[in-house]
Every structure is written in C-alpha cells, then in structure tokens.
C-alpha cells in the first residue's frame, strides 16, 4: 500500500556507486486521482534542509526506467501511474547525513480539461513537505 503523504519514506536513502555515495533518492506518489503522461510533467524541484536541487541534478525513475528531466517531453506514451511512486534521484556527492531532514518536492503537470488559465492547477501551488528520516 502507499503511504498517505505525497513524499514516501520507503526508499528514501543515499545512492551508492561502488564505495562512493553519489546522491540520494526521494520516492513521490501522485495524490492526484489519475496518472499522467511524462510530457505533462514540468521539471521537478527538490530541497533538503533548504538546499535546492533542480534541472539535470534530478533524474526521474518510473517503473524502473530512468528519464532526464529535459527528456520527459519525448516519452508521450509513457505513463506515470498514481498507483506507483516515482523515484527522484538527486546528484549530490557524499549524499545526505543519516538522520532527520526536512524534504520539499515540487511536482507540476498539465491538466487539459481545466481552463488554460489553470493548466498547472493541480501542481505548483506549493511544494509537498515532509520531515524524513534517512537510515542508509
């Protein structure tokens, strides 16, 4: 089952490559009532304890496949399901310290059935926030 908040704790951890920690990852789910096609997504931003990450510092992992943020528009037939968290992988040599962090994630996507004025109305109001505990 999914955790209630958008930001999911299961999977929040540093990313190791060999003996080096190269970054960390944050799983997020859509609390929207349906999934979205990848081009509907706008670039996500992540911040941890006030340190902001954006653009190509972030890679999306959806159903086990990785997508650069700048490349999302090129996958019109790939669907991010609201039943499955996506994993945002963030480059940060050394990663995060074990312990408690204030994590914020902004996820924005287009919604064609709303007036164009509020195209991004279901995202972008304000970031999702959650106090998270990193254990590995």
């Amino acid at each position: 089952m999914l955790e209630f908040p958008n930001i999911q704790s299961r999977g929040f951890r540093n990313i190791k490559e060999g003996n080096n920690i190269i970054g960390f990852q944050v799983p997020v789910r859509l609390t929207y009532y349906r999934g979205v096609w990848l081009p509907q997504l706008r670039p996500a931003t992540v911040s941890v304890d006030g340190e902001k990450f954006e653009g190509d510092q972030i890679t999306w992992v959806i159903d086990g496949k990785s997508y650069a943020q700048s490349d999302l528009q090129n996958y019109p037939d790939v669907h991010w399901s609201s039943l499955t968290p996506a994993i945002l992988q963030i480059k940060k040599p050394g990663g995060l310290a074990l312990g408690i962090h204030d994590v914020e994630v902004s996820i924005v996507f287009s919604t064609s059935y709303l007036p164009p004025r509020i195209d991004l109305g279901f995202g972008g109001e304000e970031p999702y926030k959650r106090r998270m505990t990193l254990v590995r």
């Binding site: 096609w37 081009p39 528009q73 195209d119």
Partner: peptide
C-alpha cells in the same frame, strides 16, 4: 478516459495524436 490535448507543452495535440 482523457484526451490530454495539452500533453505536450506549448501546443495542442493534432487530430491524429
């Protein structure tokens, strides 16, 4: 189901899409 006309930023889907 949906026709996500604004699936691609900056343009409307073509009739074929």
């Amino acid at each position: 189901h949906w026709v996500d006309s604004r699936r691609q930023a900056g343009r409307t889907l073509t009739s074929k899409e």
